[in-house]
Design a binder for these strands. Structure first.
Lengths: 144, 144
DNA sequence: CCTTGACTTAGAGTCAACTCAAAGTTTTAG
DNA sequence: CTAAAACTTTGAGTTGACTCTAAGTCAAGG
């Protein structure tokens, strides 16, 4: 239960490259124990924390903010309230972001419908001889 | 109905800075007419197109892909089918992305619940005298 | 003991998407 | 007609998040 992993093993377990793991440590997102010779040894807690970092990252939290979270963590349980608040704020941001994406999705759908319709019109143009039809849309290049 | 706008006006109308509008043009996302002296003149179609670019961008389409879209547009209606396909592919990507964010949201909620619970436990620790309770979690710093 | 592969660091390079600066030209208001 | 504001270009700088290189140290198998 007190497992330790090299950077390569940690990399495999978390799908984060060793390069990036070192980078995260330099940026203060991670604080990994070392052997006497200076090699990193990741614990299960570290692995869990890296997975959490990936979760925050995937939901658009910037590294700097994640680093701030870590700073709070170093100050122990006095900061738990603050950290929960950070997570809740982040949750709000994410909710808003998802809602906005769903709106964009609607707009995108409308564009797609529009393209389908224009395509139908143009198929008509092709079916008839080019000269035999003077519909403006057959010559239009622009599609908003 | 054949309105024309300077770059500043276009910027105001689309909320995209003049800097960025020039940048987009350099990157092939935009093709704006000029006055005889070389000043840009944006049409209503250009404004519509910029808004469309912003939509694609907001839904994570990289500029390079948007530029490819423009290239197809230049080739006229022969490429409409292709462009619709691109939009549909993009729609799929967006759908998947939203679904994933919703999953992350669930994971985030679990973390928040966890933090709330830990906080409750710690409040207990504070309420009782420090020495009178030997619960490990009162001293733990790590929160996965 | 030796080799091979894994590890270490500091610092440079990359990429996307801007963002700004400098030096010069054009437009417009008075 | 002139001064100020707006425009032009080329090219460099910035930011966030990596990604790689070089030069060296360490660890495990035969």
């Amino acid at each position: 239960m007190a497992n330790e992993y090299t950077i390569q093993q940690a990399s495999k377990m978390t799908q984060v490259s060793a390069h990036t793991l070192r980078y995260y440590e330099r940026e203060g997102l991670l604080n990994v124990a070392r052997t006497s010779s200076g090699h990193r040894r990741y614990t299960d807690d570290d692995i869990g924390w890296i997975r959490f970092i990936m979760l925050l990252k995937s939901t658009n939290m910037p590294l700097a903010e994640i680093a701030q979270f870590v700073t709070l963590e170093k100050d122990g349980h006095r900061t738990i309230e603050k950290r929960r608040t950070m997570l809740e704020d982040h949750r709000e941001t994410l909710t808003a972001h998802i809602a906005q994406l769903q709106n964009y999705m609607k707009a995108l759908d409308e564009k797609i419908v529009y393209y389908s319709e224009v395509n139908d019109v143009l198929l008509d143009c092709v079916t008839n001889t080019p000269e035999s039809n003077g519909v403006a849309s057959c010559d239009d290049n622009y599609l908003p």
